[in-house]
């Protein structure tokens, strides 16, 4: 099948970008979306043109490196799926697709479809961890964790940090990402001592990074490739309020 692609091309963070039309011919339905772009890039290289830059690595849907907008939807039309796992059988011959990078002040475009998501690392650095220096841990079974808590923590911990939530959010808020980490660690007994400081530090960092505020719209949840639920954001709000009260932090 053939597809008409409108791809955002931008040389670097400073220069302005624009969409350029490309024709992807000979698209096989068993290709992944990224393989379709590989083939397009091969044809561009053959013509001496610069290939489209896009981030990708594991191509198994777990590393969180890939991701851009297809027709205005983060990771494309298939729910619970990253781009690398999205196959061309979900598109039809002659379809017209707009490919754009994640857009948020906190995620500046690096080139074409590649953005800089280091703001996420700084959110984690601010407090998304449990301070357990190597060597200090007690036996793994010394502190029991109810199965339900472990499962819920795992649901939240499944976040791959791809940034689709921010990209899709009309407010460009990082609340789903932060809520997932705060829930993951806050649901485990090991995460309790730093629970309230964690939420305060991460929320403060998020303001500094200029992520928007959550208005409970839910578009993040709809495009999250790991189907993380809005409940994690409520948990973050709860911890935030509790932190304000208990720690007299604000």
């Amino acid at each position: 099948m053939r597809l008409l692609l409108h791809i955002w091309r931008q040389r670097n963070a400073q220069e302005k970008g624009r969409t350029i039309r490309y024709l992807a011919a000979d698209v096989n339905p068993d290709m992944s979306f990224l393989e379709m772009l590989d083939v397009l890039n091969e044809s561009l290289i053959a013509k001496g043109e610069e290939p489209v830059a896009f981030d990708h690595d594991c191509r198994e849907g777990i590393c969180g490196t890939c991701g851009f907008m297809i027709n205005g939807v983060a990771h494309g039309p298939l729910r619970g799926t990253t781009l690398c796992q999205l196959h061309m059988r979900h598109f039809h011959d002659g379809e017209e697709l707009y490919l754009e990078p994640w857009r948020a002040r906190a995620f500046p475009v690096v080139r074409d479809l590649v953005v800089d998501r280091s703001a996420f690392d700084r959110l984690i650095s601010a407090g998304g961890f449990i301070s357990a220096s190597t060597g200090s841990a007690p036996d793994g079974n010394a502190i029991l964790v109810p199965k339900e808590n472990a499962e819920q923590a795992m649901d939240a911990a499944a976040c791959i940090g791809c940034g689709a939530c921010v990209a899709m959010c009309p407010n460009a808020s990082a609340s789903l990402f932060m809520g997932a980490k705060i829930s993951h660690l806050g649901l485990l007994p090991q995460g309790q001592p730093e629970r309230l400081e964690r939420v305060l530090a991460m929320v403060a960092q998020s303001n500094e990074e200029r992520f928007g505020g959550c208005t409970n719209i839910g578009e993040c949840e709809a495009v999250c490739p790991k189907q993380i639920k809005l409940d994690v954001i409520a948990r973050m709000h709860r911890d935030f309020l509790r932190a304000g009260w208990r720690r007299r932090a604000f």
Binding site: N71, Y98, G213, V223
Partner: peptide, 16 residues
């Protein structure tokens, strides 16, 4: 805040 957080909008954006 939302305009500050996303100064450049999408050429095409779909919604849920």
């Amino acid at each position: 805040l939302k305009r500050i957080a996303r100064p450049i909008g999408y050429v095409k954006k779909d919604d849920v």
